[in-house]
Design a protein around this nucleic acid. Sequence first.
DNA 1: CGATTCTTTGAAAACAGTCAATCTGTGTGG
DNA 2: CCACACAGATTGACTGTTTTCAAAGAATCG
Lengths: 171, 171
Amino acid sequence: MIESVSTLKKLRKHQFLLQEGDIWNFNAFVCEGCFRRYHIDENGNEHTLQFSIENWWTGDRESLNLGTPSKFNIEAIENSVVLLIHKDQFEMVCEKIPSFSNTISSILQKSMTVSQKRIQADISLTAEDKYLHFVQTSPQLASRVPRNMLASYLGISPETLSRIRKLTARK
Amino acid sequence: MIESVSTLKKLRKHQFLLQEGDIWNFNAFVCEGCFRRYHIDENGNEHTLQFSIENWWTGDRESLNLGTPSKFNIEAIENSVVLLIHKDQFEMVCEKIPSFSNTISSILQKSMTVSQKRIQADISLTAEDKYLHFVQTSPQLASRVPRNMLASYLGISPETLSRIRKLTARK
DNA sequence: CGATTCTTTGAAAACAGTCAATCTGTGTGG
DNA sequence: CCACACAGATTGACTGTTTTCAAAGAATCG
């Protein structure tokens, strides 16, 4: 059973699943709630790399693969529940159940597609179009995530996002 | 042998490996040269999603997985040679040689890491810092790729890139 | 060479960021 | 339950950056 190789962890809003400098050794499946993974730059600005809601994954792949200290923070932005699977146990399961590897592979493929779409938006669109694109592709998140975090995800300032929203609201 | 399930294809500079609207059925390993994958938006502007040089892969994952017409063009920007492996043959090899799946998985992991770094740069950095970051992380490409294509990769205009280069040159 | 394409430059306009102030809502402790 | 504090969101004025458009200057290739 999956429970035998994993642990459920509850986090309240504002609690951290991972903090910068820590080493990340898990695969984390979000059962309930919402997390965001972000980075703090040298000027103290936060940049959100990922939001993860129910039935999706979170974690720091780089820290997991290389065993290096993470450069990210992962914070619960709602009261949440995650299933944590330690990497050793994860590898064990992969070996025991070959079809599991395929599942992982297809999750990775899906992640790649999502990332590609985001890069395309980042390099192609204006601030306004980035926002509209986000609302269109992730309406659930758009209403669930605080605006300042959304701005840091889109790579624009909170003020700019506020103005864009005002403009696009009327119509 | 790998040759039995694949074909070598030579392309001259400016030739296309894939054109928008076509369906992509391969995995393509670059043996020699350099490709770029780009998208043309409704205003006719090109946006470069990927450069692929020797020992790396190219293709359109979305078209490959879903069997849908591609939204991308893949163009040889140097005289190049690619190894094309048809998806059916690729799957066959995966089934025959289980360890091959792991190889694929680790390539995907690497791709994801690269994409994540790019997203982080896209949402965090100014035009100038994006350029400097690119030069630092991909010095080979920086000297090999035409500047207008580099600009379209960084999400800035060719004029801005030209000005940035002038500024950063002296020092 | 000539033609084409790429790159650079300049000036103006559009866009997004910053800073500071105000407004809003939420939650906490008295 | 209210008042207060606090964080998030909005607004305005200003600054700075980036784009756009047009033109001139390299570089490349037949």
